[in-house]
Computed example of a mutant assay.
Amino acid sequence: MAGYIGLADFCWAYGVDYRELAHQIKDSIMADAEQGNARYERLLYFAFEAAARGNIYSRSVGDMINLSDSTDTRQACDNMYAQFQRIARMK
Rank of each mutant, 00 (worst) to 15 (best):
E49S: 09
A33P: 07
M1A: 10
A88M: 04
F48D: 01
A47C: 01
S58K: 02
A52C: 03
I65Y: 07
D27N: 14
C11M: 06
E49T: 11
A31C: 02
Y57N: 00
S68I: 11
K26S: 15
K26A: 15
A47M: 05
N55W: 13
A47D: 14
C11H: 05
E49A: 08
A33T: 04
D27K: 14
L7N: 08
I5V: 14
D27F: 06
D78V: 10
A76W: 00
Q24K: 10
S70G: 01
C77H: 10
E20M: 09
D72V: 00
E41H: 12
M1Y: 07
A33C: 12
Y14L: 09
D63S: 15
E41D: 11
L67S: 10
Y81Q: 10
H23Y: 03
Y57C: 00
A31L: 11
Y4Q: 08
Y45C: 02
I87Q: 02
R89N: 14
M1W: 06
R39N: 05
M80R: 09
A13I: 01
E34W: 10
F84A: 00
I87T: 08
I65L: 11
L67P: 09
I29W: 06
R39T: 12
K26C: 12
N37L: 12
L43K: 11
F84L: 06
D63T: 15
F10L: 08
M30N: 03
I29M: 15
E20P: 08
R74Q: 15
W12V: 12
R53W: 06
A51S: 13
S70K: 01
F48Q: 01
R39L: 10
A50H: 05
N55K: 09
Q85C: 05
D17T: 03
M90H: 03
W12A: 08
A8H: 06
M1P: 06
S70E: 04
A50G: 01
G6W: 02
G54F: 03
D63G: 10
L43G: 07
I65C: 05
S28C: 02
C11F: 05
D78S: 10
D17Y: 03
Y14V: 04
D78N: 14
G54E: 01
A13D: 05
Y14G: 07
S68P: 02
S28M: 03
E49N: 04
A13C: 01
Y45D: 09
E49D: 13
S70I: 00
M80A: 14
M64T: 11
M90A: 08
E34S: 13
V16F: 07
F46W: 05
Q85P: 02
M90T: 13
I29N: 15
D63Y: 12
D69A: 07
A22Y: 04
Q35K: 15
D9Q: 11
A76P: 00
A52I: 04
N79Q: 09
L67Q: 08
K26M: 15
R86P: 00
A2F: 12
C11A: 06
F84Q: 00
Y40T: 14
C77E: 08
M80H: 04
L44S: 01
S28H: 05
L44Q: 07
